[in-house]
Design a protein around this nucleic acid. Structure first.
Lengths: 132, 132, 132, 132
DNA sequence: GTGGTCTAGACCACA
DNA sequence: GTGGTCTAGACCACG
């Protein structure tokens, strides 16, 4: 699972983590019983304080998404309501709309925008491959 | 223009306002030169402090989206980007990356993602046309 | 860096700070990457509210002069202008016009004015060199 | 006398007027006994509220710079301490320094800056001529 | 009535 | 300790 943090979004880092992990859990990117990355390495990788990652995991636990077994790690619980395709699209639509609006404000035309989207997709896919 | 605040989202209220107003501006829901709701009444309506709305408007002004004339009000500006191409790309890349990451976590594949992007672009362009 | 506020000038305190810090940054009194005084101590020293200093720093950040990392502090950024040539000229024209108007009211003629401009340019360039 | 207002400087408009008129008075741009522009036309020309001009004149009167004779107009009083050359230079230096700093921040080099200064001087001199 | 500045003080996110 | 957000309320400049 590749996690990405934006320190300037105004959204608390721990909530960014919570959302991304919940999305992954609800969409099958994470499977029931699978282990989440452990706190210390993840905190280092994201250049974030360990407390921040711990807080995100605590939040996920209190939401019933994961289960923390002290000394062993954090694992995805069963019973997570799966996102329907339309629920996924709704979340994604919101993200895409923000980019579309930004493009309009910056007077970037459709073709340039689509080119940039493809370029970012390629760049991201490369990153995912490397991480494996 | 409909503004709606989610106090639980973790996203700062003033940034929620900024995003929604930018969207309204970009999609034609607000016309060039048109006055935005004035600070005090809007603050009351949203049950938010006056300063919070003022901060949102100040942010929009510094982004060049609106012009505020003290004693008169805040008005939507003609849309001309003052950024260099590289600065524009940087801003846009950030927005696109967020959508790409969300797609990854939601297990939406490349083709479905691109289709959704095109669909949103079309939808947005229709809205802009209608508003004219 | 020496900061000094004139409470009677009519100029907002936060803008006085912005101008003085920009000057220090431009003239080498502050180096790239160097930390600015932190908000709370500076506010106490200047006998000004914390929010006022914070507003000055926020303005500097939005102008791209400094970078602020929550929890760590505010740092002087590498100086690369993100504006288009025409946007740059617009800003600069405003500053120059103010000086030209002042010269007119002070009955300083064209040649004396140009001489003073060159003198200040030299003085500034010397300061920048010394700081290196 | 040509007056110039900057609505965005943060400095109150009436104080901008006071300063410019005081400078002109102290430097011989205005002569003892000479009439100042009357309030209404000046307010229209500057696109400013009449109250604002009136406030500037009231301030100047309370400072003893001008004398208001109801029904006749406002006139420059005697006894105004003349600015010495060094006092004039001090004020002007401050204005010029701000422009120099802005040029540095915007990475405009010396020659381009000087060219822009000359261009603005020419533009201003044309305006003064037209106004006569 | 409009927006702008400033103060004072609370709470949060993060190191 | 750092900066960020928000509230509450005062006063100013301006129309």
């Amino acid at each position: 699972m590749l996690l990405q943090i934006d320190f300037k979004s105004g959204k608390p880092v721990y909530l960014q983590l919570v959302d991304q992990i919940r999305y992954a859990a609800a969409s099958g990117g994470l499977r029931t019983g699978e282990a989440l990355p452990s706190i210390r390495p993840l905190a280092e990788e994201l250049r974030v304080n360990r407390n921040t990652v711990a807080k995100a995991y605590a939040e996920l636990e209190s939401q019933g998404v994961i289960e923390t077994i002290p000394g062993k790690g954090c694992f995805l619980r069963e019973n997570n309501s799966q996102f329907t395709r339309s629920a996924r699209d709704k979340i994604l639509t919101k993200e895409i709309d923000e980019a579309v609006v930004a493009a309009h404000h910056l007077q970037v035309d459709r073709d340039a925008f689509l080119a940039l989207v493809k370029e970012r997709l390629d760049s991201f896919e490369r990153k995912v491959k490397e991480a494996k």
